[in-house]
Each structure stands twice: as C-alpha cells, then as structure tokens.
Computed example of a mutant assay.
Amino acid sequence: MIVRIMGEGQVKLADSHFAELNALDDELLTEMESGDGPGFRATLTALLDKVRELGTPLPDDFLEPSELILPAPEASLEEVRELLSDDGLIPG
C-alpha cells in the first residue's frame, strides 16, 4: 500500500504492518474523542514514526496515487478530526 504523510512524501508499506498501525490509530481516535491534546500529539508522532520506520520511502518524482493519506506531524487536533472516518485514520 502507498501511504502519504502530508508535507513529507510517500512510502510503500506492506499490508502486514497494518495491525500494528491500527492499534496506534485506535489510541489516537480515543484521545481525540476525549480531547486529550498531549496524548493526541504523542500518539500521532508515534504513528507517523512507525510508518516511516516500517515503510520504504518512494522517490519524490513517483506519481502514483496514495491509498492512505496521513496528517502532517504538526497537524492540530481539529485538522486531524477533519480527516477521520468512523474507523480512524487507517481503515480496518
């Protein structure tokens, strides 16, 4: 799957990593629903770090569509709330 981190670029990520990422996504969703700003920031950072760690960066001139778009690291709680679906940032 091709994942874009807004403002950074794209990475290719194996589907086998999504269970691990979904755990962080569930935590992020809970923090957003409760308005836990510090927890939200820490979990968003952990989620993006994990995507960078597990993914393979794609060249800047790679022009395939992203299957998943994640917010920029500095995104506010309100900005991320706008990106959410019922499943969080990561479907499934």
Score class of each variant (00 low, 15 high):
P71A: 10
L29H: 09
L47M: 08
E20I: 08
T30C: 14
L21K: 01
L48T: 14
L24C: 00
T43G: 07
A23W: 08
E33W: 12
A72G: 09
P57M: 08
I69V: 14
E27I: 11
I90P: 02
D60R: 13
I5V: 12
L48F: 09
L44K: 05
V80W: 06
S66M: 11
V11A: 08
A42P: 07
L13S: 04
A19Y: 06
P73D: 09
D60C: 06
A75V: 04
F18Y: 06
N22K: 14
T43V: 14
L29Y: 06
L47F: 02
G37E: 03
M6F: 12
I5T: 04
L47T: 01
E78C: 03
L47N: 02
S85V: 01
G55N: 10
T45V: 15
G35E: 05
L44W: 02
G9N: 14
S16W: 11
A42V: 09
S85W: 00
F18H: 01
L48C: 15
D61M: 08
A19C: 04
P65M: 07
P38F: 05
L68Y: 02
D36Q: 02
L29G: 03
A14K: 11
G39F: 04
V80M: 08
R52H: 10
S66N: 10
G7P: 07
E78L: 02
D25C: 11
S66H: 10
L13H: 07
R81P: 00
P38E: 07
K12Q: 15
G39L: 03
G88Y: 04
D86M: 10
E33I: 04
G9K: 11
L54R: 09
E20F: 04
L70I: 03
S34K: 08
F18R: 00
V3R: 01
T45C: 14
P65A: 10
I2Y: 09
M1K: 12
A42N: 14
A14L: 09
P59K: 09
E82T: 05
D60Q: 13
L68P: 03
V51C: 14
L24W: 01
I5K: 01
P65G: 08
S66A: 14
L63K: 11
E31T: 09
I5W: 06
A23F: 07
A72I: 02
R81A: 02
V80T: 05
L44Y: 01
L47D: 04
G39S: 07
V11F: 05
P71E: 00
A19D: 07
P59E: 10
L48D: 13
I5G: 04
G37S: 07
G7F: 05
A46N: 15
L83A: 00
E64M: 13
N22M: 13
D60H: 13
S76V: 12
L58G: 11
L44E: 01
E20A: 12
P38G: 07
V11K: 03
L29K: 14
A14P: 06
L58N: 11
D87N: 11
L89M: 04
I69G: 05
A42Q: 15
D61A: 11
A46V: 12
V51N: 05
F40G: 00
T30M: 15
G55P: 15
E33P: 04
M1N: 15
E8A: 12
E20Q: 10
L77A: 07
D26H: 06
T45D: 14
P71I: 06
P65Y: 06
D49C: 10
P57G: 06
L63T: 10
L21D: 05
E74I: 00
S16Q: 12
L48P: 06
G88C: 04
